[in-house]
C-alpha cells in the first residue's frame, strides 16, 4: 500500500447525510473479481441518466470539481453494506481523503486498508468546508503527521487512532504486521484447544 503522509487537493462537497455504500457504488458493479476500475461507477445513479449521459444537477459533474481529491460528506458517511468496492471506487476516481462529521464503522476501517485517509471533523468545520468548496475552487492541505487540515481562512486539528496513523504513514501491509505475531496465534490455538473444526468448539 502507498504511504500517505501529506496531501494537498481540491475539495468536493457532497452535502448529504447517510450517504450509503449502495449510492457510492451500486450493486450491478460488484460482480467484477478485480480491485481496480471501479472509479467510473462512483455514485453511478446520481451521476448518470438511464441513457448514460451525465446528470447536470449532480454536483460532482460540475467541471470545477474535475480535479478534486478530497471528498467532504455529511453525517454517517459510508453506512450500509460492507462492500470494499466503495473505497475502491472513491480511490480509483481520484480521492485520497474523505472528511465527514461521522463515518460508518466498516467503511471507516476499509479506507485505511486502501490508503485513503478518513478524517472526522466537528460539524461546524465540515459545514464551513462545504460552504467554501461550494462557492469557489477550494484547496485544502492535509498533514497526517501533525494531524491537521488547513486551507485559506481555516485550520483544524483532527483525531486519529495511533495504529491507523502508523499504518497510513508507513503504507503497511497489515497481514505482514500480524504475521510478526504468528507465535501468539499458534499459542492461542494451543491454549484454547477448541475451535477444532467448523462447528465443534
Amino acid at each position: 500500500m502507498e504511504p500517505l503522509k501529506k496531501h494537498h487537493g481540491i475539495v468536493y462537497p457532497l452535502n448529504r447525510s447517510n450517504v450509503d455504500t449502495d449510492q457510492i457504488i451500486p450493486k450491478q458493479f460488484l460482480k467484477r473479481i478485480e480491485r481496480t476500475g471501479f472509479g467510473q461507477f462512483l455514485f453511478y445513479n446520481w451521476r448518470f441518466n438511464d441513457d448514460g449521459s451525465l446528470k447536470e444537477n449532480f454536483s460532482l459533474n460540475d467541471p470545477k470539481y474535475n480535479d478534486a481529491s478530497i471528498l467532504v460528506g455529511g453525517e454517517n458517511f459510508g453506512c450500509g453494506s460492507s462492500r470494499e468496492h466503495a473505497p475502491w471506487a472513491i480511490q480509483d476516481y481520484g480521492f485520497k481523503v474523505v472528511i465527514a462529521p461521522s463515518f460508518a464503522d466498516i467503511f471507516y476501517n476499509n479506507c485505511f486498508k486502501n490508503g485513503i485517509l478518513p478524517i472526522q471533523l466537528p460539524n461546524d468545520a465540515v459545514e464551513k468546508l462545504m460552504e467554501k468548496a461550494e462557492d469557489e475552487i477550494y484547496g485544502l492541505s492535509v498533514d497526517l503527521e501533525k494531524q491537521v487540515v488547513y486551507g485559506r481562512e481555516m485550520e483544524v486539528n483532527f483525531d486519529i487512532q495511533p495504529y491507523h496513523k502508523e499504518m497510513l504513514l508507513n503504507g503497511w501491509d497489515e497481514i505482514a504486521v500480524t504475521l510478526t505475531h504468528e507465535d501468539k496465534i499458534d499459542q492461542y490455538e494451543k491454549n484454547t484447544k477448541g475451535v477444532k473444526t467448523l462447528g465443534i468448539s
Partner: peptide, 20 residues
C-alpha cells in the same frame, strides 16, 4: 460482524483481525 474484503484476506491468512 461484517468486514471488508481486505479484512477477509487478513482473516483467511491469519484467522484473526485487529479490532478496537
Amino acid at each position: 460482524f461484517g468486514i471488508g474484503t481486505s479484512e477477509v484476506e487478513h482473516v483467511l491468512a491469519t484467522q484473526s483481525i485487529w479490532q478496537a
